[in-house]
Amino acid sequence: MVDTLNVELPGLDCGLCGYRTCTELQQRLAHSPKLLERCIHLSKDRVQTVSPPEVPPDGATKSPGRAARPAGGPAVLPVLAGGAAPTWHDSLGREFDFYLEHFPEDRGPREIILPHNPLITRELAVCRGDILIGRPLGMSCGCPITHCGVATEVDLRTGVIVWCVTGPLGPRQHGFKDLGYYIAEGYEGLVRETRCELKVGLRYFFQPRMCMLQWRHSGLVNYLNRDSAGYQVRLEGLWIG
């Protein structure tokens, strides 16, 4: 049994334990010793010397990251990489051939998408300028992230929509139409940095610059136009990885 009555509380009366004064907490410690862990001014080590860590109360939420530090990682991280040259590796260490950027005139990466229920394009009366949200699912690009965007072209016969992916501020400010799940059928954009010559008809691994997860994608280049800024490309047959 831990003698919590003799624990010296800091006397700051800061309220961070949920009690207004240290005296109030001290009085409750006699009946509930584990309340001591609520005092953030006692370092973990000091708390543990008087009261071993206890299992959280039933129903309490648990911290998820407990397995988290990558095994074998350095104790101190290396120096920040600022403005580094491309490493041609994605966030999972996989190689890719080029970065896909969005056109400067676009509000974000341009994608050709098809709702899993193409009729929803008509049912929602989607038109140019509409703010949309949805999640890519399955074939292709089964990305786990909900995307937001602004429609730039709409084909009501097929349900195909061209949109520019944006952040969530637009939907938050102006409302949105929810497509549910959709398929990413194609990307169009600029290639400014590549480590190989691009050819129509070949598949490449590439890194969409704005990909939230920085995962490489793959796709077949079926349109290519070289200009002073680099390549204008269209990619279809998309996959993540």
């Binding site: 530090r69 944006t166 939230m212 997860l213």
Partner: peptide, 29 residues
């Protein structure tokens, strides 16, 4: 959101949660 995505642009996973060991999808959400 805990990530940087409350800005105008599509965001990155939270560098804070990544540093805590969360994988990118979780660090995003």
């Amino acid at each position: 959101s805990g990530s940087a995505c409350s800005s105008h642009h599509a965001g990155q996973p939270s560098h804070v949660l990544e540093a805590m060991g969360f994988d990118p999808p979780r660090a995003r959400g």
